[in-house]
């Protein structure tokens, strides 16, 4: 009964917010509200079933899940990758010699931002969160300034492309706003690492064309999840199954 009560209350709330904006006629609205009110009862007694998103991790990989949860897990996976990378960058013995004091200040902040993003998604997803991913950084030379900066640029540009391409796949405007809050910070990072590699390349949209940017229109990168995961796959040991993610 508790579930039913909660459902009806949430119903009321979401309906009110829907109706304040929607265009349906009053007549349609009245029928509609009666309908949704009834649905809560049906839902309460329903036997919806489905396997948990990571039940089949052994065969098809870690399943991100579907709907908005799938997109949040997708973001969680990318943030895990970034956070692990910067943690290793800062921990490396060459960090303090390869980078100036100002650069060290910047990079440690970036590390903290990515850890904050990772932990945010983990907390927001709760029991729906995928497992901790195993990364593969064997191609990165953490004692080499250029290798570190180039990888950082790659990850940040890819992160921007990922969030820009995922916004349209979300249903919840609340999650869309969260994604927006994060993507601009990733873009600030991306611009920084581009400038550290080549000052003035902070928004070189022509070079970002392979990631979906369009310089003539002034548009940044944007990629769909399969393309992002393919680009990130060489850095992630854990097999990721994105087959249930929304596609539009």
């Amino acid at each position: 009964m508790d579930i039913l009560k909660r459902s009806e209350k949430q119903d009321e709330h979401s309906l009110l917010s829907d109706l304040s904006q929607q265009e349906l006629s009053r007549r349609k609205f009245l029928r509609f509200s009666g309908l949704v009110g009834a649905s809560a009862v049906v839902v309460g007694g329903a036997g919806l079933t489905g396997c948990k998103k990571d039940d089949d991790s052994s065969s098809n990989g870690t399943n991100l899940g579907s709907g908005d949860v799938g997109i949040l897990n997708y973001a969680y996976a990318l943030e895990q990758l970034e956070a692990a990378f910067y943690t290793q960058v800062v921990a490396n013995g060459s960090f303090t010699t390869n980078f100036s004091a100002l650069e060290q200040e910047y990079i440690k902040d970036v590390r903290d931002h990515e850890i904050a993003h990772r932990e945010f998604f983990k907390a927001a997803l709760g029991s729906n969160a995928i497992q901790a991913l195993e990364v593969d950084f064997s191609s990165i030379d953490f004692s080499n300034r250029s290798s570190v900066l180039t990888t950082a640029k790659t990850f940040e540009d890819l992160g921007v492309a990922a969030y820009n391409g995922a916004g349209k796949l979300l249903v919840s405007t609340d999650y869309l706003t969260i994604a927006g809050k994060i993507v601009s910070v990733e873009a600030r990072h991306a611009a920084l690492f581009r400038d550290l590699l080549s000052n003035g390349s902070f928004a070189d949209l022509t070079s970002l064309q392979p990631l979906g940017a369009d310089n003539a229109k002034g548009l940044d990168a944007a990629l769909n999840p399969p393309d992002v995961l393919a680009a990130a796959s060489s850095y992630i040991k854990t097999k990721i199954n994105a087959s249930n993610l929304p596609t539009s």
């Binding site: 949430q10 904006q21 929607q22 919806l48 079933t49 396997c51 579907s66």
Partner: peptide
């Protein structure tokens, strides 16, 4: 399709609401 798998049943009306909002 994700509702049964990933969301508590109590969340269904909210999910329905947000989709209709869309």
């Amino acid at each position: 399709s994700f509702i049964g798998k990933t969301l508590a049943l109590a969340a269904v009306p909210t999910a329905l609401g947000s989709m209709l909002n869309k």
